[in-house]
Structures are given as C-alpha cells and as structure tokens.
C-alpha cells in the first residue's frame, strides 16, 4: 500500500469519492426497483410511491453532480501538490502519466460529469412533461452512470496506490515535447492551417447552434475537440508560458500562471459538455433549450477570447510572435 494514501489531501479525496459512491449505490437500488415496478397506468399506492422515489434519485444525483464538479478540480490540485513530492514531476502532467490509470481516470471523470449533466437535463424535462416520457431512458442512463462511477472509484484507489514516490517521473517536455522532424499535429496540419480551422470551427459551431443544424453542430464539436486541444497545446499554450517549446496542458493550472488553466480548459470542456447536452436535448428529446445554447456559446467565446488575448498581449509587448526553437536530438 502506497504511503501516498496517507497523504491528507488524497485521503480526503478518496473519502469523498467513497461517500458519493455509497449514496449513488442507494440511488442504484432505488432505480432498479423503480424500473422493475414502474407502470404509469396503474392506480396502486405502489405506483404513487414510485414517483416519490424518483425524486429521491433526482436529489441524490444533484448531490453527486455538484460534488463531482468540485472533486474534479480538487483532484487536479491534489496531483499538483503531489508533484512536489515525486521526483521529476514539475506539474500534474508527470503525476497523471505515472501509471496507466492516470489518463483513463481523468477521462472517465469527465465522462461521468457529462453523463450526469445529461441525466439532469433529461430529468428536468421529464418531470415537466405530463406522462414521464423519458422515464426508462433516465433509468438506463443511470445504470450506465453507476457502472462508470464504480469503475472510477476503483481506478481512484488503484491510481494513487500505484504511484511510487521514489521513482522518477517524466516531465511534460518528455511527454509533449517536440522532436525534430516529427509533426505532432493531427491530419498533417501545419500551425497556420490549424489556427484557421480553430477559428472557423468556432464560427461553424455558433452558426449551426443558432441555425438549429444539429448534425452539423455534432461534427463541429467533434472536430473542435481535437483541433482545440492541439491548438492550445502547440500554439496558445506557448504564449501562456511565453516559451515556444513548452507544450504542457497541465502547467497552466498552476499558481505561477494565475491558475488560468482552470478557466481556459473549464470553458472549453464546459462548452463541449453543453454542446453535447444541447444535441441530445434536440435530437433525442425534441426540446430546444435556449439558455443552454447561449451558455455554450458564451463559454466557447470565453475560451477563444482567453486564447487569443494571450497571443495578442504577447505580440503587443514584444512586437513579434514566438518562434519555435529547433530541438536538437541529444546523442
């Protein structure tokens, strides 16, 4: 058992995750019971009780969502703090890639948040409808969520347990660094084309959202996920660090950069989540939620603005753009 588990912050984190899981276990039992017995047409007291139980599940899920929302940045912060103890790591990038659980864990956490958000949205409209039309959908979605959260809990434990603080970790320069001659960008793009795509996709997303073209929006979101990520990593991020070869997604979450990473990635991921939620609302439920769309656009706009501002400020201060330094292979 790793001594890391005794670390105060990690212990608190794991305890919190356990409590949330436990409460969700109760919701799981209730959901299964409701799914089995639900019969909207019936007049029995059992059916009326089921409606009340449905509210319990809702309450538990709102709780879980709020807590997971807090626990995600807390998780990242914790990893940042551990990077002090672990040799070689300068930020959470090293910690998270220490073992094979790290990245998987991070992504499952994002996935869970997304699913919870979607569930809550469906629930909101299900309650407002007269016949609980999406009742089963909610139920099955929850079962999936519970499965994911159980896996997450196991990976939480496994991840921290598997970190050996006496081994040297990789720093982000090893993980994300540029090697001479190798183009890290997808689809064989170069920086200019990447940026053009970046801004174009943003416009495409905004237009398709208000034009109610949800299939186009879906494509736009998928592409933007990839392009946005790489743009931040290999272009905008370098302006945040003011170093042409610093390509780390995690370092910007640190105090040295005024924690801008949280705002930047937060807007990006938030926008994506809201986008997915909007698409599901429109294509699956047939409901158009104006507020959600506006919020999504606002978040993406914030994201674009932050990225562009860093470049603009650098240019204004220095009169030039950053030139990437050629990295020589060390023999």
């Amino acid at each position: 058992m790793s001594s890391l588990l005794l670390n105060t912050n990690i212990a608190i984190f794991l305890l919190a995750e356990w409590i949330v899981w436990f409460v969700l276990l109760i919701a799981f039992g209730v959901t299964v019971y409701i799914l089995k017995k639900w019969d909207f047409q019936s007049y029995t007291p059992v059916q009326y009780r089921l409606e009340k139980y449905a509210y319990l599940v809702m309450v538990i899920l709102i709780f879980a969502f709020s807590m997971k929302f807090i626990l995600l940045p807390y998780f990242i912060f914790t990893m940042d703090k551990i990077s002090d103890i672990v040799p070689g790591a300068m930020c959470s990038a090293g910690v998270i890639s220490f073992n094979h659980y790290g990245m998987k864990l991070f992504f499952i956490k994002l996935l869970i948040l997304l699913f919870l958000m979607v569930w809550l949205m469906i629930n909101h409209y299900d309650l407002d409808a007269k016949k609980y039309p999406w009742f089963k959908l909610k139920g099955w979605l929850y079962l999936v969520i519970f499965l994911l959260i159980s896996v997450e809990l196991y990976w939480d434990y496994a991840f921290f347990n598997d970190i050996d603080i006496h081994k040297v970790l990789n720093c982000c320069s090893t993980l994300y660094g540029l090697l001479e001659g190798v183009n890290p960008l997808p689809f064989g793009l170069d920086k200019t084309r990447l940026l053009i795509l970046f801004y174009l996709l943003y416009i495409m997303i905004v237009l398709s959202t208000f034009g109610k073209q949800y299939f186009i929006l879906s494509i736009g979101l998928i592409l933007f996920t990839i392009i946005g990520y790489y743009s931040v990593l290999y272009f905008f991020g370098t302006y945040i660090y003011q170093m042409p070869n610093h390509n780390c997604p995690f370092c910007m979450l640190q105090k040295d950069y005024y924690y801008i990473g949280y705002l930047l990635w937060g807007s990006f991921i938030g926008g994506l989540f809201l986008g997915v939620t909007t698409i599901i609302a429109n294509l699956v439920l047939g409901i158009d939620i104006q507020k959600l769309k506006i919020l999504m656009v606002l978040l993406f706009t914030q994201f674009i603005v932050i990225c562009s501002l860093y470049v603009a400020i650098y240019y204004i201060q220095n009169g030039v753009f950053l030139e990437p330094v050629k990295v020589e292979m060390v023999m």
Binding site: F40, E51, Y55, L127, D128, K130, K131, Y132
Partner: peptide, 8 residues
C-alpha cells in the same frame, strides 16, 4: 387530475 405528475 388523477394521473397528473406531482409537478403539474
């Protein structure tokens, strides 16, 4: 009114 969900 009997079959109305609580909200309604």
């Amino acid at each position: 009114i009997i079959k109305l969900p609580d909200q309604h």
